[in-house]
Amino acid sequence: MLKNRIIPCLDVKDGRVVKGINFVELKDAGDPVEQAKIYSDGGADEICFLDITASNENRETIIDIVRKTAKECFVPLTVGGGVRTIQNITDLLLAGADKVSINTAAVKNVDLVKEASKKFGSQCIVVAIDAKKVSDNKWEVFTHGGRNKTGIDTVEFAKKVEENGAGEILLTSMDKDGTKTGYDVDLLKTITNNTNIPVIASGGVGTLDHLYDGIVKGGASAVLAASIFHYGEYKIKDAKEYLNSKNVSVRL
């Protein structure tokens, strides 16, 4: 039976982790490579890096981090943030990323998704969608880290990226992100019901029960979380044992 995945996400800015893990065993709380290794040793099913570096000049930095992490972590590594071109994707994959997530660029030009999935295979193309609720059961796609409205309906867009070859959707609720009040389960349910590719739930996790909701109520294939793991509230192992105790199958 396919297991539900737990994916810790590390936000990286100018080569340093922004929301650092608060683990005592850490030598350097800002080093993304060291933190990724801790997660991977702790049983993370995948590792996700989100590069939130504002400038374009610093792309080399994330590539270097990916290169170092890939030599130490032998679980899948997804990298996103600022991916705009086929060349960006090539560089990340060559450095050792297994999947690349495309956000704003996929909204601007869905052909990038099509071209990338044809060139590298759907298995390594994730489309990250940032959605905000606009009315009952209606969500709009936002870009640029949630700053820009697009007027595009999230369900329509999710279907469109699937048709264009995306292998997975990383779905973040902008309303919930950072609130620690749980995923937007209605949004998740709507997207998982309307697409046939795996959906990764993101935005809003504050408790282990929220992970359960994302999988069981929202239908997500994987759950992504940042702060509950970073600050040492829970270890990956705690999350897995909790889900397992509630009959949600995970890799123990």
Partner: peptide, 12 residues
């Protein structure tokens, strides 16, 4: 469509 494709993740 009962099973999502690609088959992505950890399986026994």
């Amino acid at each position: 469509g009962k099973f999502k494709l690609p088959h992505i993740g950890w399986n026994e």
